[in-house]
Design a protein around this nucleic acid. Sequence first.
DNA 1: CGGTCTTACGCCTTTCGTAATAATC
DNA 2: GATTATTACGAAAGGCGTAAGACCG
Lengths: 270, 270
Amino acid sequence: MGVDPHLLRTLVTVAECGSFSAAASRLGYTQSAVSQHIAALESDLGTPLLRRRPVVPTPAGERLLEHAGPILLRLDAARADVRRTVADPPSTLTLAASPLAARPLAVALAEVRRSYPGTDTMLTVCGRDEVAEGVAAGTFTLGLVDGIAAATDPLHLTAAVQLRTTPVAHDDLVVALPKDHPLASRSRTRRGLSLGDLADARWIDAPEVAAPLTALRAAAGSDALHPAFTYNGTDVHTLLRLVASGHGLVVLPQSALVPDVAAVATALSS
Amino acid sequence: MGVDPHLLRTLVTVAECGSFSAAASRLGYTQSAVSQHIAALESDLGTPLLRRRPVVPTPAGERLLEHAGPILLRLDAARADVRRTVADPPSTLTLAASPLAARPLAVALAEVRRSYPGTDTMLTVCGRDEVAEGVAAGTFTLGLVDGIAAATDPLHLTAAVQLRTTPVAHDDLVVALPKDHPLASRSRTRRGLSLGDLADARWIDAPEVAAPLTALRAAAGSDALHPAFTYNGTDVHTLLRLVASGHGLVVLPQSALVPDVAAVATALSS
DNA sequence: CGGTCTTACGCCTTTCGTAATAATC
DNA sequence: GATTATTACGAAAGGCGTAAGACCG
């Protein structure tokens, strides 16, 4: 009685894997145990949660899955929170950052190394949600996340756990165009190139890195922003090369476009 | 391993009761079982969570308790959510409302009875948080909550579960004064009686019914709003009588002060 | 002492794995 | 027929209650 988190965890894994046996091996259980877990959940809730062969969540299962992730995350967060109050300050600081938080990251890193000279520092770059979840679960000491924010609504974190957040920097958004794009010259002269002018352009949807297209549609008030394709990745460099090759446009913070790194010839490069 | 919700529930109960044995009888366990629950949690987390005799949470315990409530609530919410997708529409609608949501409640009630003529309707009036928690846990079908809200920030629900919310009505806030209060006449003539003028008045803090004083302090920008006493209750009628008797002032929505009910003499009243 | 929490121990329930059965592709 | 899910059953572990012990006021 009462929705055991263990069972929720197997349900989530089964839903992700789309298979009982795959979930079993990932969790270190036997297929039998996984089957019993799902059966226990279903008998407890009085309704099937998964349709078998293929394994797909029922509507009821979908509802439960919507809750399962946040619950498990919060459970981890609780444990991490307790340990944090007990343990002495860690000897290695683990930082996490989303790719476009690079500029404030440099500042934060300097600050951290100055304030805690003795401690090692580890850095992980990953998607926004992974940063938030990692901080919540205690995997990371500190996380830096970028995102579209207004003055009133600082940043809409999708994580289910409320975290202590502080805005640290802001940057203007620009449209990344290939250099030979017809509008590229216009963008030099006048800053106000409205999104409406680009409604018919081909866009790259890169939700893990840049502004998600849905957010842009809301901002532009236009439904006409069609993605040429979706880029599931966190690498900004690759994304910029795709833009340069004319595969589509992307909205990015200005600082992402400006290379602050100089190239100097070395013996190796000759 | 892994923070069993059962254990969390007993921890919460023990912290509320301030006693193992009291918590045991409330939960239907023996004192021994409760002791084992706490011991299991403490050994799992590797730190004491409660200081005994008297029973008070340690700092680590406080942290865990901050998470425990929301987790347990969300667990209930998940179960209720699943059942809701499976069960056919309930034969009795259970509504809940905070006391000062009375006016929109009347409208909602009429709407509900018109739309679902066959179904019985049950109404519960309780504090804002209880409404939110009840809706999350599926105890209530629909909840109406009042609160101080701006256009940008609709209503800050403290509940840990995000609920589908819709603003349905708004009302101006007024200061409730006794009729013979020196400022009562002024309030008739001009509406703009600033909170600063009343900074030195005696206030009744009724956080479950009216605007909490902390919210007023933030709005007034003044730290000088001192409560004469705190009223822990949900009954508006009693609160208004306290104001009328000169025990203190209260900020309420305007509609709470206007009696729309007429008195007519009956045989019984002679 | 009276009350309250902790520990020890026995019983019962739960849960997992092995293995056999059933069902689907 | 091969893969995958369910069912049956035995062994191990976990959880609860009773009862005795330890601690504090």
